[in-house]
Amino acid sequence: MPRDVILTPEGLTKLKDELEHLQTDRRREVAERIKEAREFGDISENSEYDDAKNEQAMLESKIAQLEERIRAATVVNPEELSSDVVAIGTTVHVKDEKTGKSQKFTIVGSAEANPAESKLSNESPVGRALLGHKRNDVVSVAVPKGPARKFKITKIDVGL
Rank of each mutant, 00 (worst) to 15 (best):
Glu80Tyr: 03
Glu80Gly: 07
Leu81Pro: 07
Leu81Cys: 08
Ser82Asp: 08
Ser82Ala: 10
Ser82Cys: 10
Asp84Phe: 01
Val85Ile: 14
Val85Met: 03
Val86Glu: 00
Ala87Gly: 09
Ala87Arg: 05
Ile88Thr: 03
Gly89Glu: 07
Gly89His: 04
Gly89Asp: 02
Thr90Met: 09
Val92Met: 08
Val92Glu: 01
Val92Lys: 00
Val92Tyr: 10
His93Glu: 07
His93Ile: 05
His93Pro: 06
Val94Lys: 03
Val94Leu: 02
Val94His: 00
Asp96Thr: 06
Asp96Phe: 12
Glu97Val: 15
Lys98Met: 04
Thr99Arg: 02
Gly100Arg: 05
Gly100Glu: 05
Ser102Val: 05
Gln103Asn: 13
Gln103Ile: 06
Phe105Lys: 02
Thr106Gln: 10
Ile107Phe: 07
Ile107Pro: 10
Val108Cys: 05
Val108Tyr: 07
Gly109Thr: 05
Gly109Pro: 14
Gly109Phe: 14
Ser110Leu: 06
Ser110Ala: 15
Ser110Thr: 14
Ala113Thr: 15
Ala113Phe: 09
Ala113Trp: 13
Ala116Arg: 15
Glu117Ile: 04
Glu117Gln: 14
Glu117Tyr: 02
Glu117His: 08
Ser118Phe: 14
Lys119Met: 15
Lys119Val: 02
Leu120Lys: 08
Leu120Ala: 08
Ser121Gln: 14
Asn122Val: 11
